[in-house]
Nucleic acid binder design. Structure first.
Length: 264
DNA sequence: TATAATGTTCTCGT
DNA sequence: AACGAGAACATTAT
């Protein structure tokens, strides 16, 4: 579940409970998720310290080790950060497990192993080196217009491009386009000013509403497209059959009836 | 059993 | 050179 709202929900759930507690042990169950650091160095870096802060930018979570680096955590296509009481079972695909002094554990859960944990001295440096653009949640309207309107390809691909704006993936790009009533395959340069504005509005609405829901542990609203991206499902707005197409290598779901071309 | 899955990165072509 | 499209990656659920 790892797009901006999902990561933000994880951050909110974990931040206060995983900070300021001495880490007594680190178990690297599968070092395939470690980048730029060995299991041994991770252990030396973290054991005896605590996380002083946990923040997020786009789809990346940053946990600061007191007196040391930040750990950049990315979940890839699947994953979670789970707090597990001592004695309770870890998630099935816990790849790295931090154990606090009271035996509660923080598990980096990552079924598909597309995720990673990587140290960095500074968050801004990490973002620059990895060419990660501004966070979608705080991107203002003018910058959004410039970034998306200035792209050459299809609008869905522009929204998902992390170097342009960070945090939006396949599911939420579809949701934003659905709300703005714009087809995902429209070429970005064909969008008018009004459409770029409504797209920006839709992005803010979708992200903020999704964060509220997920933080409360609730499902996304039933009238959202995200609840219907399945063969045979119909549009929650007009009832017509939903369409899907391959865009940027991923499956884009949309309503051909509700979502128009560049001129609406 | 074959397919697709909420992501990134590499390669290739324009 | 910079950008965009598509394949590859590891693993599991349907």
């Amino acid at each position: 579940m790892p797009e901006l709202p999902d990561i933000e929900a994880i951050r909110a759930r974990v931040a206060s409970r995983a900070t300021g507690r001495r880490i007594g042990d680190v178990d690297v169950v599968d070092d395939a998720v470690l980048r730029q650091i060995s299991a041994r160095t991770l252990r030396e870096t973290v054991v005896g310290q605590d996380f002083s802060d946990i923040t997020r930018h786009g789809k990346v979570l940053f946990a600061h080790v007191t007196g040391g680096p930040w750990l950049a955590m990315h979940f890839g296509m699947t994953g979670d950060l789970a707090l597990v009481a001592g004695g309770d079972a870890l998630p099935d695909h816990a790849r790295v497990v931090f154990t606090f002094d009271d035996d509660e554990r923080l598990a980096f859960d990552n079924q598909r192993k597309f995720g990673w944990i990587e140290p960095t001295e500074d968050v801004d440096t990490y973002l620059q080196e990895n060419e990660i653009g501004p966070d979608a949640l705080t991107l203002d309207r003018d910058d959004f217009r410039q970034i998306v309107g200035g792209s050459r390809g299809q609008v869905k691909s522009a929204l998902m491009n992390q170097s342009k704006l960070a945090g939006i993936g396949n599911v939420y790009s579809d949701e934003i386009l659905f709300r703005a009533r714009i087809r995902p395959d429209v070429k970005a340069p064909e969008l008018g000013e009004a459409q770029l504005e409504s797209l920006h509005d839709a992005m803010g609405d979708v992200l903020e509403m999704a964060i509220k829901k997920l933080r409360a542990g609730e499902a996304l609203p039933h009238n959202w497209l995200a609840r219907h991206r399945e063969e045979g499902e119909t549009c929650p707005r007009c009832g017509e059959d939903l369409s899907h197409d391959k865009i940027g290598g991923r499956t884009a779901w949309f309503c051909a009836n509700c979502q128009g071309g560049a001129d609406g």
